[in-house]
Simulated scan of single mutants.
Amino acid sequence: MEATVTKQAPSPPRRPTGPRDPVRTRAAILDAATHEFKAKGLTGARVDTIAARSGVNKRMIYHYFGGKEGLYVAVLEETYTAIRTAEAALHLGDRDAIEAIRELVRFTWQYFIDHPEFLTLLGTENLHRARYLKQSAKIRALHMPL
């Protein structure tokens, strides 16, 4: 007698049990949304897919971000915060101006290589003529004069 092996579809991420953790939930949503917006852009991204990937109820996305556009702005803010935080760690203001610019160029190119999602999201936002970036006061505050 032959044993039959059946393949099961991969199960969605399991929702953590125990006390609620809003920080972890928000981070999981942002991570899933970053992947979705990177892969499909703002127009092609689906809230259902983001909810499934993050392991949260779709209503939680609306609770935290108000909707897909609010979530997209939050992803842009998170992405820009990451590059600006890494850039600030260089302490460029403490260096000779020419060396600071050289270091900034080296850093920026390496950051683009290490974080392709940044360029993808930036390209998507350029197609929208910075419509969503303009909605964020947080991103404006992150820019350095150098």
Rank of each mutant, 00 (worst) to 15 (best):
A33G: 04
T81N: 01
A9W: 12
T34V: 00
V5E: 10
G44P: 03
E117L: 01
A137E: 15
K7W: 12
L92Q: 04
T108P: 01
R84M: 11
V5R: 11
E117H: 09
E103W: 08
T43A: 12
A141M: 10
Q110H: 12
K7F: 15
Y80P: 00
V5K: 07
R106F: 13
T4N: 04
G55Y: 10
A82S: 05
A97Q: 14
Q8D: 15
P145A: 09
E99Q: 14
Y132V: 08
A89N: 09
A88T: 11
D114V: 04
K138L: 14
L92K: 07
D96Y: 08
Y111F: 15
P116K: 05
D48S: 12
P13R: 11
P116A: 05
A137L: 14
E2I: 04
G66W: 11
L30Q: 01
A9C: 09
F107T: 07
L142F: 06
T85M: 02
K38S: 06
G18I: 08
T6F: 15
A51H: 03
L30Y: 00
E117M: 01
R53M: 05
K40G: 02
T25P: 01
T34R: 11
P13A: 10
A86E: 13
A97R: 15
P16V: 03
T43Q: 12
Q8W: 12
I101T: 14
R140Y: 11
